[in-house]
Design a protein around this nucleic acid. Structure first.
Length: 359
DNA sequence: GAGTCGTGGCC
DNA sequence: TGGCCAAGACT
């Protein structure tokens, strides 16, 4: 057992926290029943994403794809469109692949052991523990950022929560707690406490239901925990993008590669180009069999900040003749139909500036 | 172990 | 205003 647990009153803590949760939990769409599929979808959407952001996406997604079978049979592009704006798009592609596995290997029923769930694409230790405990009420740990924050304060653990080894330490601790109470309610209670009371900044210790158990509170060090190493700032990339229009009023869009950043989403032709003359963009167009645009002008600048990159995009518009010999990833679409393709937010900004403003 | 992979809200 | 964050997983 972890040495920090020596003076910790495990049973009292588990009971008091679980009682608090049952009286104070929020009404959330994925808490209306115990459907393992819905809980799974919610857990994937909630990865690194706020509850308020997820709620409308979750409701739309479940009405579009109510069962694993429905999601398995959907077009990938339809799934990505439903995910548009949520970010981390590999979550959507991995979820659909995993749901296909569940449909084929488990008859469409989400398996109920951590070992089996862990094999599914996009499901790691946290999500596997969350599904098995929340949907099937099994005594597994589900350690996310909330749980590490709460437990680091309760036990004054100063390990860097950015490290994988730290998460494992907290998993061991939670495993030794969750067997003493209702696993579904207890795991959700830890996260709910982190979301509502034991918040990253200015935690509400005065109204905390387990303040008597909290070592950080006793020592007055709650604002120093959890410990998290600073990450380095994102790297800037100068980009040039071009909205090319033909004589029919169509614009040229391009599907991004199958892997990497924003995989399989659509965009306007663009490339990294920090030149003043736009030579890289011209080379890029030439490589795709596109003639020099008859007119081209710089109409906008778009900044888009990712976790690890900043795109500084100079946006151009140009006229070009329709060319039959487009390479596979390029496509002419009517302006009104651009909205039916999944675009990252960076290029939605271009749509707003260039396409919609023209109408 | 350290990078990669999005987005919007917050103070 | 911009750095930091929010229910992580994959390579």
């Amino acid at each position: 057992m972890d040495k920090q647990l020596n003076e910790f009153n495990i049973e009292a803590f588990c009971n008091e926290l679980t009682d608090w949760y049952r009286k104070n939990k929020r009404d959330l769409p994925w808490r209306e029943d115990q459907d393992p599929y819905k809980i799974w979808v919610s857990e994937i959407m909630l990865q690194q994403t706020r509850v308020d952001t997820v709620i409308p996406y979750f409701n739309r997604f479940i009405s579009l794809f109510p069962t694993p079978k429905a999601l398995a049979e959907a077009e990938e592009e339809t799934v990505l469109k439903a995910w548009e704006g949520l970010g981390y798009y590999s979550r959507a592609r991995n979820l659909q692949q995993a749901v296909k596995e569940v449909t084929e290997d488990y008859g469409g029923v989400v398996p109920d052991t951590k070992k089996e769930i862990l094999k599914l694409k996009g499901v790691g230790p946290y999500t596997a523990g969350a599904i098995t405990s929340i949907a099937y009420n099994k005594p597994e740990a589900a350690v996310d950022g909330n749980v590490m924050r709460v437990m680091s304060r309760l036990l004054t653990i100063y390990d860097d929560i950015g490290k994988v080894t730290t998460r494992k330490r907290f998993e061991d601790i939670v495993e030794s707690l969750v067997i003493h109470t209702n696993p579904s309610d207890f795991n959700q209670a830890l996260m709910e406490l982190g979301a509502l009371i034991c918040t990253p900044r200015s935690p509400s210790c005065l109204i905390c239901p387990v303040q008597e158990h909290c070592s950080a509170r006793a020592e007055g060090v709650q604002d120093l925990l959890p410990v998290k190493a600073k990450k380095k700032p994102p790297k800037a990339k100068a980009m040039k993008a071009v909205v090319l229009e033909n004589e029919k009023g169509q614009v040229l869009i391009e599907k991004r590669p199958d892997t990497g950043l924003l995989a399989k989403l659509w965009q306007f032709p663009n490339c990294e180009d920090d030149s003043r003359t736009g030579e890289e963009l011209r080379r890029y167009l030439y490589e795709r069999g596109l003639q020099e645009p008859q007119t081209i002008e710089n109409v906008q600048h778009v900044r888009h900040v990712f976790s690890h990159i900043v795109w500084e995009i100079d946006v151009f518009t140009g006229k070009i003749e329709e060319d039959a010999a487009l390479c596979g990833t390029l496509k002419w679409v009517n302006k009104e139909e651009v909205d039916t393709y999944p675009f990252p937010v960076s290029h939605q900004k271009i749509i707003d500036y260039v396409i919609k403003e023209e109408k």
